[in-house]
Each structure stands twice: as structure tokens, then as C-alpha cells.
């Protein structure tokens, strides 16, 4: 079931277009990663979805009664409020009953790991604490859709791990759309990938789709020397690629299976250093796609 449909979304500032012709669908309780270099239009797109910006043209259709939580890339807080006061206010403004708001706020702060800093003024918070508080205010009213702009980019590796785990827990019953440029993390939590560049969507699909399209897995055979590699590859009927002493065999379409390759190698008693599967990382694909378009 789709909870949000974006059609031909465009935002122009004068002649400049920040987002052009963006279309995608968010399915219920899935995670979508919005990936792109700086200036790709990720923040502008998220701002339009959060109803902060109005689009120049295009349409955003949301499921009836959809509640949204939004975490900006650099969340700013009133420095004179404590974390609990702020989160409680955020809950109430999002429609949580006054009586329940405080309890809900302190629970949420506990969930993001700010239990001990709850009654401190946000003006004294470090960057990492602000990011956690930002997440807390985005989820305190238990929204159905979470929009997160670079939720982990400002964190150190430990903090990044913790927040990723929180997000994965949330993802069980929440739809998440998040932008990031840390592609390892995107690979970890994504049902749908959206690649943006220069305000346009240049690639979209599931992780597997995208990988298959741009970098299908290969079987890599490492020989002892280039002559051996060339001699072996010359006799093969499969599609292949030789790089020095290494032979790559794409496994998609009519490519060989690992077993077939091993059988051939064994029957010829080839002297090899190793055989393994090679899958391209999201980063490789991203660089390839961004460079291509």
C-alpha cells in the first residue's frame, strides 16, 4: 500500500531549478534512501514533502490522516528550553494530549539515549546530542512517515551505529525516507533507492535492481600470471573480462554458476590463487551512475 505519491515535483528559484520532475512512491513501512552529491536537491525535496516549501509544480498525494515527523540536517533548538520541555512542546503541537505529552516525551528521550540529559538546557548540547534530540522530536508523536535529512552524517562511528539501530527498530512500523551520502549505511536499511543529481532523479529501484542494472556480480578467478589467465579465458564461451592475471565472469543472464566454473578449473587442474564472488558496493555503483549521467 502506498502512503505517499510524488508526481513530477519541481521547485524553481527564478531560472534555477533546485528539483526537476521528481516522481516516486513510498510504500507503507518501507525504507527509502535518497542519495546524491551536495546540491542534488535532497534537502529541497524533503522540505517540500514536510510542507515547509511549496512546489513550483507537480503533486504530492498523501494517504488520509498521514502524520509526519521531520528531522532537518542541522536541527536547531531553543537554547533556553530543556530537552524534556522542548520534546513535550513538540508532542503537544503535534496533537498529543497534554496529559500524555510529558510521559511520551520522556520515554522518547530515553529511547534515543538522552535519559540523563533530559533536564539540561539544549543550549549546552553537543552536536551528537542535538542529533538525538532531533530524532526524538521527529518521532515523539509516533508519526506514520519519517523524513530524515542526513540523520547520521554528523555523528561519530559509534553514534552512527546506535542511531542506525534505532532507525531500524523504528522501521518495523514506520515508513522512512532519509537522505544520506554515507552509502554503507544506506545499503544496510533500504527497500528503495533514489539517486539524485542536479535536481533530477537519475536512478531508482530496490538495492538488487540497481545492483543488477549497473554492476552485476562477477566470479573472479585469480591466476598466477597473465599468460595463464589469457590462455584460460581464450577458451571460454562465457562473457569475460581479463585484467592482468585476473579473469572476471559476469554471472547474470547466460553467465556461469560458481559450480560450473569450479568444475572447469578442477578438470583442467589449473594452478590458481583463488576464486570468489565479487559484488559491487553501493558506493561503486553510485560513482558510476553519477559519472555516467
Amino acid at each position: 500500500m502506498s502512503i505517499l505519491v510524488v508526481e513530477k515535483l519541481t521547485k524553481r528559484y527564478g531560472q534555477e531549478s533546485a528539483v526537476e520532475d521528481l516522481s516516486f512512491v513510498l510504500e507503507k513501512e518501507t525504507a527509502t534512501a535518497l542519495i546524491g552529491p551536495n546540491g542534488a536537491g535532497k534537502t529541497t525535496s524533503l522540505s517540500m514533502l514536510a510542507d515547509l516549501l511549496s512546489p513550483s509544480s507537480g503533486k504530492i498525494t498523501v494517504a488520509k490522516g498521514l502524520t509526519i515527523g521531520f528531522l532537518p540536517q542541522y536541527p536547531q533548538f531553543f537554547p533556553w528550553l530543556t530537552a524534556l520541555e522542548f520534546t513535550e512542546m513538540a508532542a503537544k503541537l503535534s496533537g498529543i494530549e497534554s496529559k500524555k505529552a510529558r510521559l511520551q516525551a520522556s520515554r522518547t528521550l530515553g529511547f534515543v539515549g538522552l535519559e540523563s540529559a533530559m533536564n539540561k538546557k539544549t543550549g549546552t548540547f553537543s552536536g551528537g546530542m542535538k542529533q538525538r534530540l532531533g530524532l526524538a522530536q521527529a518521532i515523539v508523536h509516533q508519526p506514520k512517515l519519517l523524513l530524515l535529512d542526513e540523520p547520521i552524517s554528523a555523528l561519530d562511528p559509534t553514534g552512527r551505529r546506535e542511531i542506525m539501530d534505532l532507525l531500524k527498530a523504528l522501521q518495523q512500523d514506520t515508513t522512512i525516507l532519509y537522505s544520506t551520502h554515507i552509502l554503507n549505511d544506506a545499503e544496510e536499511m533500504t527497500d528503495q533507492l533514489l539517486f539524485m543529481k542536479g535536481g533530477r532523479l537519475i536512478e531508482q529501484g530496490s538495492l538488487n535492481d540497481v545492483k543488477n542494472r549497473h554492476a552485476s556480480p562477477h566470479i573472479r578467478i585469480r591466476f598466477t600470471n597473465p599468460y595463464q589467465a589469457a590462455e584460460f579465458a581464450g577458451r571460454l564461451t562465457w562473457e569475460r573480462e581479463i585484467k592482468g592475471a585476473v579473469v572476471f565472469l559476469p554471472v547474470y543472464k547466460n553467465g556461469p554458476s560458481m559450480q560450473q566454473v569450479l568444475e572447469v578449473l578442477a578438470s583442467e587442474k589449473q594452478d590458481i590463487l583463488g576464486v570468489d564472488y565479487q559484488t559491487a558496493s553501493l558506493e561503486d555503483i553510485f560513482l558510476k551512475v553519477v559519472a555516467a549521467k
Binding site: A50, I68, P75, Q76, Q137
Partner: peptide, 13 residues
């Protein structure tokens, strides 16, 4: 200007 308003404006204010 400081951006503190953002987290108010994204709610049904």
C-alpha cells in the same frame, strides 16, 4: 533566521 522555527513549522501549527 536561526532555524529554531523550523521544528515548529513542520508541525500542524
Amino acid at each position: 533566521k536561526s532555524g529554531t522555527a523550523t521544528l515548529l513549522y513542520v508541525r500542524p501549527l
